[in-house]
Amino acid sequence: MPKLKLKHLLAIRWFHWINFPLLALMIWSGFLIYWAYPVYSIGPVRFPQGLFRALHMNQRLADGMAMHFFFMWLFVINGVLYIVYTIVSGEWRLLVPTSFGALRDAWQVVLHDLHIRRERPPQQKYNAAQQISYTAILVMGIGSVLTGLAIYKPAQLNWLAAWFGGYPGARLIHFALTIGYCVFFVVHVIQVIVAGWNNFRSMIIGYELVDEHE
């Protein structure tokens, strides 16, 4: 018999949808800052100057810094509230992988998603690949805040900068994490499109239409 099942709690939905534009603005303003000294590359791949110009991102270092140090507060507050909420509510149990078996299961999920493997491994609310992704993105977020603080105040927080190999090291990690979010975003959106309307709708209304024979 079909029924509506609450999949995503109201608070989690708000945290997610508030985080999305905030992270987008942090990345945007971050690239305005990066424009002033865009040196990182992976082999020949470098953030192209043409893209900076096309998106009118050139000559806006001061704007980028003002925006970055404005929205950082909202980004951090939302992130901290999310972590506190998942802990207090017990939701973390569903989100955090609890054994190394998750790695094997996550691989099976990837194979399944790529249509290489027919069956999905058994799962709770989130499959092992989701658990690993959603936990990793949180660890990345914490990493961005810490490396960000290290670049922001390398004298006042010199001990923190030292964790990341000093000021240049912290800057590199901070940048790499940002690229990580961009990759996460692409994969995430593809997965959401593949999963379909019922799944996407549940991230807005909370409920998912299920027709299971239990």
Binding site: M1, K3, L4, K5, L6, I204, I205, L209
Partner: peptide, 27 residues
């Protein structure tokens, strides 16, 4: 899964459709 925090709405299929539409529109 915690049933209290993750409740279910079970209705006959006509009312269920309506309930889903109502929630979708509102949210």
């Amino acid at each position: 899964m915690n049933k209290k925090r993750h409740p279910e709405i079970v209705l006959n299929s006509q009312d269920l459709k309506q309930e889903l539409r109502r929630r979708t529109r509102r949210d």
